[in-house]
Each structure stands twice: as C-alpha cells, then as structure tokens.
Computed example of a mutant assay.
Amino acid sequence: MAHKSEISRLFLEVFPEFEAAYQEHISEYNEELAHVFFGDHVTSEVINQLKLEAFNSKAVKYFAFFEDIAKEADLYSRQVLTTTILTRIGDDITIFKEAQKYMGERTRQLSDEVELLIGRNDTTR
C-alpha cells in the first residue's frame, strides 16, 4: 500500500466515506497523488455542496477540516489546500462567494493570498 500523505490520512479519518474513492485512486495511479485525489474527488464534492446555496452541515464540516489544515498541518498539506482546493473554488465567483460563508479566518487568509497571487483580486470578489 502506498504511503498516505498527512492530508489524506487526516481527511479519511474525518470523511471515511471517501475511502473507496481513495482506494480506486491508489489502484489507478499505483501511488497517492494527493493533488489529483483532492482535485478529482474532494474539491468536486465540496463544489457540489456549495452549489446548493443553502447553509448545509456538510459544507461546514469540509471547511472546518480545511481550517484545521490551514492552521496546523504540514507544508505539503497546506499546498494541497491552496493550490488544489482553494484555487479551484475561486475559479467560479458564485461558488467562491458561497465558500466564503464557510471559511475560517486562516482558510480565508490563504484563499485571499491565492486570489492575489493569481490575479483574481478585483473588487467584485
């Protein structure tokens, strides 16, 4: 079995319903590619929850996890959060604005840094 990154290990502890998708990912790539796993499976599900545009406990749980990663996890885990999850969430202004309702202080700070870095720091955000 491939070694799980810290973010994957922590994520699967909180969200065991993703274990089958994770195992399929390992089977497909013969290793863990956390950016791919989180991009293909996790971020897509988070975006689907945000599209509901109604306060939902699933989104609260995702963003609480992201806040923990933003505050306490290793550098690689924070890179997955910023470059894979937060960047993609920022691709759609409607999704981005909905996500902001759930972001904790540190997640919001990282998101703002991402948006500034890639040039999406206009006043409409």
Score class of each variant (00 low, 15 high):
residue 34 A to K: 01
residue 27 S to H: 11
residue 39 G to F: 11
residue 35 H to N: 13
residue 58 K to I: 05
residue 75 L to Y: 13
residue 91 D to V: 11
residue 28 E to Q: 09
residue 39 G to K: 11
residue 82 T to P: 08
residue 73 A to Q: 14
residue 28 E to C: 04
residue 28 E to I: 07
residue 25 H to W: 03
residue 44 S to P: 00
residue 51 K to H: 15
residue 50 L to Y: 09
residue 57 S to T: 07
residue 27 S to Q: 09
residue 28 E to F: 08
residue 34 A to F: 08
residue 38 F to H: 07
residue 38 F to D: 06
residue 58 K to V: 04
residue 63 F to K: 06
residue 41 H to P: 00
residue 28 E to R: 10
residue 22 Y to S: 05
residue 26 I to V: 04
residue 48 N to Q: 09
residue 69 I to K: 14
residue 94 T to K: 12
residue 46 V to M: 13
residue 114 V to G: 10
residue 84 T to S: 12
residue 37 F to L: 06
residue 113 E to L: 06
residue 31 E to Y: 00
residue 97 K to A: 08
residue 44 S to N: 03
residue 23 Q to C: 12
residue 40 D to R: 03
residue 85 I to F: 14
residue 51 K to C: 13
residue 78 R to E: 14
residue 83 T to D: 13
residue 76 Y to K: 14
residue 41 H to I: 00
residue 56 N to G: 06
residue 101 K to Q: 12
residue 57 S to W: 01
residue 92 D to F: 02
residue 105 E to S: 00
residue 107 T to C: 12
residue 31 E to D: 06
residue 78 R to A: 09
residue 110 L to I: 06
residue 75 L to I: 10
residue 68 D to R: 09
residue 26 I to P: 00
residue 54 A to S: 11
residue 97 K to T: 07
residue 24 E to F: 05
residue 85 I to K: 10
residue 105 E to I: 01
residue 68 D to G: 00
residue 79 Q to W: 06
residue 92 D to K: 03
residue 27 S to C: 11
residue 38 F to C: 05
residue 102 Y to W: 10
residue 100 Q to V: 08
residue 96 F to H: 08
residue 107 T to I: 08
residue 33 L to E: 09
residue 77 S to F: 08
residue 25 H to D: 05
residue 81 L to N: 13
residue 28 E to Y: 07
residue 44 S to L: 03
residue 110 L to K: 11
residue 106 R to P: 00
residue 55 F to S: 04
residue 63 F to Q: 05
residue 66 F to N: 14
residue 41 H to E: 00
residue 88 R to D: 13
residue 55 F to D: 14
residue 109 Q to A: 02
residue 33 L to M: 02
residue 97 K to G: 09
residue 77 S to E: 09
residue 89 I to N: 08
residue 34 A to E: 07
residue 72 E to P: 12
residue 62 Y to K: 01
residue 76 Y to E: 15
residue 88 R to H: 13
residue 90 G to F: 05
residue 93 I to S: 03
residue 107 T to G: 08
residue 96 F to K: 06
residue 33 L to P: 00
